[in-house]
Simulated assay, not measured.
Amino acid sequence: MSILSPIQTMSTVLTQHPFWKNLPSQFFPILEEHATYQDFRAKEKMFSKGQNADYFYLIIEGRVTIETPFVPGEGVISVQHVGAGEPLGWSWFFPPHKWHFTARAVEPTRCIVFDAARLRQLADADPAFGYQLAMRVGTLVTERLQATRSRLLNICEVV
């Protein structure tokens, strides 16, 4: 028995997800066609540093930790947590399309998952969609890098 809530229609979830806020409505049918749900158990690894970044995740429910690889003297460090209403992953958007961190579900987590190669193809084929996607991913990268920098500075101050 799953402790995750019943699955809503993809259309409803996509249009309500904050990542797509103010996205022109003509793009939602395209996104819906290429979106699937995926559930992860608590402590389940979603992806690992160095693997191909083949998917883009929007967290619907649950929480995920983003971890560094092993740091001498520190071990694995959780640099950030992301949860419901947040996107997960940006490495899929930029060559060489390899994950820079590892992601692990902290608790049961439900995501909408997109095939990254397909999203990139759609962005290439439709510059208006590509612009919308690039602006959102660019904002995500900026936010995550600032959060990671802050977290790592806090760790260094403690040491």
Rank of each mutant, 00 (worst) to 15 (best):
T15F: 02
T15K: 15
T15I: 06
T15M: 14
N22C: 08
N22H: 09
L23E: 03
P24Y: 02
S25C: 00
P29W: 01
I30A: 13
I30R: 04
I30F: 09
E33Q: 14
A35E: 06
T36L: 09
Y37R: 07
Y37I: 00
Q38M: 10
D39R: 03
D39G: 05
D39H: 06
F47P: 11
F47L: 07
S48C: 06
K49I: 15
K49S: 15
Q51V: 02
N52T: 12
D54F: 02
L58T: 05
L58C: 09
L58E: 05
I59E: 04
E61A: 02
R63Y: 01
V64I: 15
V64Q: 01
I66N: 05
I66S: 03
I66E: 02
T68H: 06
T68G: 10
P69S: 15
F70P: 10
V71E: 10
P72C: 01
P72K: 13
G73V: 11
I77R: 13
Q80E: 13
H81T: 02
V82N: 03
A84G: 15
G85H: 08
G85F: 09
E86V: 00
W90K: 01
W90L: 06
W90I: 07
W92L: 13
W92D: 05
F93S: 11
F93T: 03
F93A: 13
F94W: 09
P95Y: 05
H97I: 09
H97R: 10
K98E: 14
W99K: 08
F101E: 07
T102D: 14
T102P: 07
A105F: 04
V106C: 07
E107D: 11
E107F: 01
E107H: 01
I112K: 04
D115T: 03
A116S: 13
A117M: 14
R118E: 15
R118L: 14
L119S: 11
Q121L: 07
Q121K: 15
L122R: 12
D124W: 06
A128H: 00
G130A: 03
G130M: 02
Y131G: 10
L133R: 03
L133V: 08
A134I: 00
A134K: 11
M135V: 14
R136L: 14
R136H: 06
R136N: 08
V137H: 03
L140A: 07
V141R: 13
T142F: 04
T142G: 04
E143Y: 04
R144G: 09
R144E: 12
R144P: 04
L145H: 12
R149S: 09
S150H: 07
S150I: 00
R151I: 10
L152T: 11
L153W: 00
N154A: 07
